[in-house]
Amino acid sequence: MRKHLNRAAVAALSMTFATEALATEWNVSLWGKRRAFTEHVEKLAELVSEKTGGEFTLNISYGGLSKNKENLDGISIGAFEMAQFCAGYHRDKNPSITVLELPFLGVASLEQEVELSMAVYQHPAVVEDLARWDATLLMPSPLPQYNLVGVGEAPATLADFEGLTVRATGGIGKAMETVGAVPTSMSASEVRQAMDSGIVKAVSFAPHAHMSFGTIENGTWWTTNLNPGTVNCPVVVNTTALEDLSDTHRDALLSSVDEALDHYVSHYQNKTMEAWGPELDKRGIARVTFTDAEITAFKEAAAAPAAASWIEHNTKRGLPAQELYDLVTGMIANGS
């Protein structure tokens, strides 16, 4: 009897270990709170769990695993399996994808931003660039053109930006320099305190971030049509962890990306943008619109020099910079 019980116990334990072996949990490092910017990751987690019957789960953490500027470092050492970061936070660590942050590229929609990003992410030089961090680019976090929310007297012309301290990263910061502003790079979570303390007088964000990080709580004006560019904030996975997944789990993850992005774009367009105007009106935030002539002059002053500088600098680093730039601008010119 005892012999049979032992065999039964062994069989039960074996089944338990087999079940546990099938289960996969990934930790995902985000920051802030759940918002439009993270909806594709939330949707991805939902889809992956559904497709695998709960055997593969994404445990999403908002700031509990790493600081946002250190997420790529965390991926590189396997501290977590998935993370989101913005290219402009550390341009030297991911120079290839900063081509998507050049000012005045002329991206017309979130859908186009997705197409451009995915094309760049799949370029061999970009794959190699991120491989230095054991990172595989999974999907972008497409954002509309940035504009400024500021405090104090609203600028009437672009000349009024002279000496204005502005939170602006990447290519947007370079663009703001051409009109005399003083750009400062800081993470989104630091922005509200910087505005309150007077470190910056204006903040460059997409609408969702202005609402999520509180710039409209004390802002007095918003630029409607400055549109200097946007930032590129990919979701990456640890390459080793991706390769270690079972074929079923890997397929569940990769096959869910398109649906997660569709959900993100729909959510941003139908919820975030619909809420933006009423939020400005509720707070009495003045809308500042610049003339076509001023915007044209701004673009001419900022776009070409920034592109030329980016190409020269990154060619010296060994990247096919001209090729990457031509890829992006060619797709935009063709309406892709």
Rank of each mutant, 00 (worst) to 15 (best):
K3E: 14
H4W: 14
L5E: 08
L5I: 14
L13E: 11
A18R: 03
T19I: 11
L22V: 14
T24V: 15
T24K: 13
E25G: 07
E25L: 09
S29D: 08
R34Y: 10
F37G: 04
F37Q: 13
F37A: 14
H40W: 06
E46V: 12
L47G: 04
V48R: 02
E55C: 07
F56P: 03
I60N: 04
S61N: 13
G64Q: 10
G64T: 06
S66Q: 11
S66M: 13
N68W: 06
I77A: 09
G78N: 11
F80E: 03
E81D: 13
A83Y: 01
F85G: 04
Y89E: 14
R91W: 00
R91D: 03
L100I: 04
E101S: 05
E101R: 03
E101P: 02
E101I: 02
L102F: 01
L102W: 00
P103Q: 09
L110F: 05
E115M: 11
E115R: 15
S117K: 06
A119V: 07
V120Y: 06
E128R: 14
D129S: 15
D134G: 12
D134P: 03
T136Y: 03
L143H: 13
P144W: 10
Q145P: 08
Q145M: 14
L148H: 11
G152K: 08
A154F: 07
T157Y: 04
L158C: 12
A159Q: 09
T165I: 04
G171V: 08
G173H: 11
M176W: 07
A181D: 07
M186P: 04
S187K: 07
A188R: 13
V191F: 00
V191S: 12
M195A: 05
M195P: 00
H208C: 13
M211Q: 14
F213M: 08
T215L: 08
T215I: 07
T220W: 00
T224Q: 08
N225I: 12
P228S: 12
G229H: 08
G229L: 09
T230A: 14
P234D: 05
V235D: 00
V237F: 01
T239N: 01
T239F: 02
T240C: 03
D247T: 15
R250C: 07
D251A: 15
S256C: 06
S256Y: 01
D258T: 11
D258R: 05
D262C: 04
H263S: 12
H267S: 15
M273E: 13
M273N: 12
G277I: 05
P278I: 09
A286Q: 14
R287T: 00
T291C: 09
A297Y: 10
A308V: 04
A308K: 09
W310M: 02
I311Y: 00
N314T: 10
Q322P: 02
L324T: 04
D326G: 05
D326F: 05
M331N: 06
G335F: 12
S336F: 11
